[in-house]
Write a protein that binds this DNA or RNA. Sequence first.
DNA 1: CGGGATGTTGATGTGAATCAACGCGGGTGG
DNA 2: CCACCCGCGTTGATTCACATCAACATCCCG
Lengths: 236, 236
Amino acid sequence: MDNPFVRKMERHVRLGPEDRATLDGLARQHVRHVAARQDIEGQHSNPYHAHLILDGWACRYKQLPDGRRAIVALLLPGDLCDPFAFRRVRIDHAIGALTPVTVARITPDQIGDAIRDRPMVEECLWRELLATTAIHREWIASVGRRSAIERLAHLFCELHLRLSRVGLADGATVPMPVTQPDLADALGQTSVHINRTLKELRTSGLVTLRGRLLTIRDLDGLMERGLFDPTYLQLA
Amino acid sequence: MDNPFVRKMERHVRLGPEDRATLDGLARQHVRHVAARQDIEGQHSNPYHAHLILDGWACRYKQLPDGRRAIVALLLPGDLCDPFAFRRVRIDHAIGALTPVTVARITPDQIGDAIRDRPMVEECLWRELLATTAIHREWIASVGRRSAIERLAHLFCELHLRLSRVGLADGATVPMPVTQPDLADALGQTSVHINRTLKELRTSGLVTLRGRLLTIRDLDGLMERGLFDPTYLQLA
DNA sequence: CGGGATGTTGATGTGAATCAACGCGGGTGG
DNA sequence: CCACCCGCGTTGATTCACATCAACATCCCG
């Protein structure tokens, strides 16, 4: 009865009890565990199932021929790995677990049935995809035009907000179970420079990051530092 | 009877004559002209209409508080400016004309009716949105992990392919009606550096750019230089 | 036939990458 | 249970890709 996807969707659309039950049913069958650093979907695969993240963090990433890795999205509990799976398209990137991950595997048929029974489910899929594109656009702007410290501050604000929506933020403290090399590949930098930037955020009293927990000491200051405007995440 | 959106969609889905007529009808009413450098939608606006680009180039962009501009997408003929308009969401970015642009204005009702009459229309909207996200991801990888020359080469390959799909490429020659400052804001660089990079692509015999026309002298070489893998655009 | 936007080139500056070294911690195998 | 070791975090020295600053050429439009 407690599904991070439902928790997130309830912020945007009005779900009746049957809608909630249907969405919840989708996430109950075929629960699977994936170890950290394992792929959930390989690059250029043609996924048959959709996956909903129930616990843990994953990422979409592209591996360039010479080994460089670009993380193009972070997937948190409540996020759909493959909102396109039921369209049977070949994906252009891999999906990898950054931590141990629990996912629910959903077949195209299940989604089709759910949509037929409860049209609101399709509305949820649209919302989810629109939110994804909004986040993508913000990342493009970040990597293209924000400085190192602005990028990191912006990402922390984004993650704080996204985790709050699914009930995973404990006030100003949020889990941050990724390594500095992971952050580097997500922000288009090196882990060395992430480390220095992190230090700068710490010494300015904005955040502390210890033991895979991020504590935001000054949210307003952090938002200002990252030029963070939360409207893009509130597709309501 | 000649609509760039239809031309693009026919590469992905099988359209019957009625589908084609319906899609074409959407693009026939309320054709509007927008001058270069005018906004089609303002940042943070809450668009009521969807706009389909019939002619000219536009872009999605975000203006940072201090004036920096990030172009997060290029919109070519056949692209939908607001695949989300009929979901009534507030947008998080502006849409601006880069050249004089002709757009078709479409109301949510028209889209709703079209979907009800011809379910294939909704399929087309899904495809369009999925293609958009794939391009977004490629841009994130570009700006994050590709060098200046790789980025520019990659963008030229992308535009060549996208323009070909709507019949706007004349062999290896494609229109490129944007300024170097525009390219700079799209690739996260400065116009000065775009200029030098362009020179490098020219002296390596890969492309020439003159009079708003890009000629690709060596497509294979350009694709290699840009680490370009076209699968992401072929969501078929 | 101007004049402002755009393109081009050179000189110089700098933010972030690279290279390198070392501490630390947690997992693993002997 | 301990020793090892590999990945991660941290810091300093150096390099480099790209930004910035500046000057001038060129194009296009009115």
